[in-house]
């Protein structure tokens, strides 16, 4: 009833392009996209990140050397032929870095997918049904949060250590410790949203619980879920790198950025091209993902846009 000076009541018929301020939940896809595109750092990060993904995925197409090809140019410094140089076996470091980046990304996406799915299901069930189910699910969530995750991860990953093709297992093990924040975020969103009158309206017309959650609640919580999932990708890649660095990550013939950093670490001072390229690639990728995540958060919820974002 107040005429708040800042919020402009859109007069729809009169104003063609609605300059109104849709709420966080009300933001349509187009509006979110427009706001994201205004966020220059995030757009730049997205461009760089995509370029890096494409570079690693299609490395075979544009780069003459393969990661398993053994040349007789041993421990060469970077050159026009070998962009990042070669290692002591004569393998091309650029090709290996791209190969590692592919695998890191794969692990990151699979783990994030699994963690997001688990987190959303747990969070939605807890937030919608409340009561004892909420209590039980949230205690389990708390339990997982309080476990020293790296130690448990190492124990679990040890079972798959040095087994070829273990990256699936690694991804799922990581996912087992990456769903909790998603569950909490989803739960709190559902708790808030389920107080909305459109949910009451759906209940009054006899809509099933599943329909209300899937049709009304999750679509309106999608912003938070996507933002958190994006940030999870970066976190998961970092965890995988840590595991690989400690020797518990993906096993040969696969490699990952963490494994490459581990291999290059001993030579960091003598042959820096073995250590820095995969390391910097990893850091840049993670930065890009996090910037995109921040940009998405601001785009979905402009009121929370931080002063650091722009």
């Amino acid at each position: 009833m107040v005429d708040a000076p800042v919020e402009v009541v859109p007069a729809p018929a009169a104003v063609g392009d609605h300059v109104g301020t849709p709420t966080a939940a009300g933001a349509s896809g187009r509006v979110v996209l427009r706001r994201f595109l205004r966020h220059r750092v995030a757009v730049g990060a997205l461009a760089v990140g995509l370029l890096m993904v494409v570079a690693s995925m299609f490395v075979d197409v544009y780069y003459p050397h393969s990661y398993d090809e053994i040349t007789n140019e041993l421990s060469q410094a970077p050159s026009a032929d070998h962009w990042f140089g070669t290692d002591e076996l004569g393998k091309d470091v650029y090709a290996k870095t791209m190969r590692g980046a592919q695998k890191s990304l794969q692990v990151g996406l699979v783990a994030t997918l699994a963690a997001t799915l688990a987190g959303v299901v747990v969070g939605a069930a807890a937030g919608w049904y409340r009561g004892w189910l909420d209590g039980a699910l949230m205690r389990v969530t708390d339990l997982f949060l309080t476990l020293p995750s790296l130690a448990v991860l190492l124990v679990l990953a040890n079972r798959y250590r040095e087994q070829a093709g273990n990256w699936w297992a690694i991804a799922l093990v990581i996912a087992a410790f990456a769903w909790m924040y998603q569950a909490r975020i989803t739960r709190s969103e559902i708790l808030t949203l389920s107080g909305r009158d459109y949910v009451a309206a759906a209940r009054a017309m006899g809509a099933s619980d599943l329909r209300i959650v899937v049709r009304h609640l999750l679509p309106n919580a999608i912003g938070s879920i996507i933002v958190n999932a994006t940030l999870t990708v970066a976190a998961v890649i970092l965890v995988e790198s840590s595991l690989s660095f400690l020797g518990f990550g993906v096993a040969p013939p696969d490699t990952s950025l963490g494994r490459l950093v581990d291999e290059g670490a001993q030579a960091a001072s003598t042959r820096p091209w073995l250590f820095y390229p995969p390391g910097l690639w990893l850091v840049t990728l993670l930065l890009c993902i996090n910037f995109v995540g921040d940009g998405l958060r601001d785009a979905f919820d402009p009121r929370r846009a931080g002063t650091d974002g722009r």
């Binding site: 402009v8 009541v9 859109p10 007069a11 729809p12 018929a13 009169a14 104003v15 300059v19």
Partner: peptide
């Protein structure tokens, strides 16, 4: 009739005329 005008798009002339 109609809606109060949006301050972002005030009508020309008397604001109440529409």
């Amino acid at each position: 009739a109609g809606q109060p005008p949006s301050p972002a798009a005030l009508p020309a002339g008397c604001p109440f005329h529409p």
